[in-house]
Measured scan of single mutants.
Amino acid sequence: MASQGTKRSYEQMETDGERQNATEIRASVGKMIGGIGRFYIQMCTELKLSDYEGRLIQNSLTIERMVLSAFDERRNKYLEEHPSAGKDPKKTGGPIYRRVNGKWMRELILYDKEEIRRIWRQANNGDDATAGLTHMMIWHSNLNDATYQRTRALVRTGMDPRMCSLMQGSTLPRRSGAAGAAVKGVGTMVMELVRMIKRGINDRNFWRGENGRKTRIAYERMCNILKGKFQTAAQKAMMDQVRESRNPGNAEFEDLTFLARSALILRGSVAHKSCLPACVYGPAVASGYDFEREGYSLVGIDPFRLLQNSQVYSLIRPNENPAHKSQLVWMACHSAAFEDLRVLSFIKGTKVLPRGKLSTRGVQIASNENMETMESSTLELRSRYWAIRTRSGGNTNQQRASAGQISIQPTFSVQRNLPFDRTTIMAAFNGNTEGRTSDMRTEIIRMMESARPEDVSFQGRGVFELSDEKAASPIVPSFDMSNEGSYFFGDNAEEYDN
């Protein structure tokens, strides 16, 4: 783990906690998980779902989305002020799938948001429990990260689609708070800032007046979040320049895209947490497990152990491969979309394939898809080993990566060399080191050039047997250095459309 220093740990961010010791953190995270579980059980009762239907990941996603929508204050306010045809701002819903006479049927349900809020609060001892809501947002974000390569979004903001390893959390809503900021990748933060800068260039009043003052505060806050992700002084200094700019424009845009590229080699610290679907927490609570009393951590053995003992089902389209669908969801559960496939294969105990080789589309089923041909199958979400999630980018030494994705962002704290394609990355730096950030740029390029592919990161860190909950005997895996390590390699994943 990167030293926490003055930073709060993510469990504290996750639970809005002030400084807590490890036991208190485990208890408050457990409380959050228990609340999600209780809410899910109650919703299944309301909807009269069978046990099997309640364990269907598509039903879980609909129920999670309903509660997130019920608590989305800004959108609710907007919907009330701008009524649109056929949208009731006070209601929320989605597809629920039921097994009827041996076939899967889709039923569109509609609930009062007020009623959903009441059920959620009741499951969370009367609190709004925003930490639990954020947790579900991060699960949705991790699922998107594993399912889609955001080529269009990258290109629109002047970045290269091969930089997708920097895009963790790119679909997280803005209201996801400190826990959300911690899991956002460098590219995601750059993209958010670039969008602001572009608006400022096109709209003279963007930075002016009372609204402009708020915009400015948001801009500086985002700059500080991004600065905190960088691990070298030169990158941090460049972020200070971007933040202090009187009138952010093209120079800042250039600096930010430069920094994003540099992060492929001088990786930023991005938190990883295993956020599971509500249909995993519900049955665990129903079986009598007391998360608050037992304590829970999002970055240790607990999620692995929970998945070892969970039964989750998914709808499967006619030509999809259930094992591939399982891999997709497994990666999402562990926030591992940008991790090295060699490491993932070792931990999972079966070969993890790149996205383009998977015969599976996303987990969600569109409303126009034919239910007649839908089957369902068990998702295999178990693992051979477990490993500690990392909050750091690993040290800054790398190795060759593949054509589709030119770097990785480690999820697990496991000893290995970190793949990246130096030639491709360095070719993108057209040696432009003039301007006010020239000395920093020169320094950053120097550090990137001296990074050695064969150097090892996370020295001495290994994986653990599932029986080793105290992480007492690390097993340090050895990897084939020459092997392909990137998930979005030469990829044809669908595009994420909101």
Rank of each mutant, 00 (worst) to 15 (best):
Y10I: 11
E11L: 00
Q12T: 10
Q20S: 13
T23N: 12
I25E: 02
S28L: 13
G37C: 13
F39C: 14
T45F: 07
E46V: 11
Q58M: 10
N59K: 12
T62H: 01
R74E: 06
K77Y: 02
S84L: 07
G86E: 05
P89H: 15
P89D: 07
P95R: 08
Y97E: 10
N101F: 00
K103V: 04
W104F: 14
Y111I: 13
I119K: 03
T134C: 15
M136H: 01
I138S: 05
L143R: 02
T151Y: 01
G158A: 05
M163P: 00
L166F: 00
L172T: 13
A179K: 06
G187T: 13
E192Y: 10
L193I: 14
M196V: 11
M196K: 12
I197E: 05
I201P: 00
F206V: 02
F206K: 07
R213C: 04
I225P: 01
F230V: 12
E244Y: 01
E244L: 09
S245V: 00
L259I: 12
R261C: 06
A278C: 10
V280D: 01
P283I: 07
V285Y: 13
A286E: 11
S287G: 10
E292Q: 07
E292Y: 11
G300E: 11
N309F: 08
S310R: 06
L315W: 00
N319K: 13
P322C: 07
A323K: 04
S326A: 07
V329M: 12
V343N: 03
K348Y: 14
S359I: 07
R361L: 05
I365H: 11
E375W: 08
S377F: 15
R384N: 03
S392I: 07
N395D: 07
R400W: 08
I406A: 00
S413Q: 05
Q415Y: 04
F420R: 00
R422K: 09
R422V: 15
A428W: 04
A428F: 05
F429L: 13
E443Q: 12
E443P: 03
R446W: 09
E449I: 04
F464P: 02
E469C: 09
P474M: 09
S478Y: 15
M481V: 15
E484W: 13
S486M: 10
S486I: 06
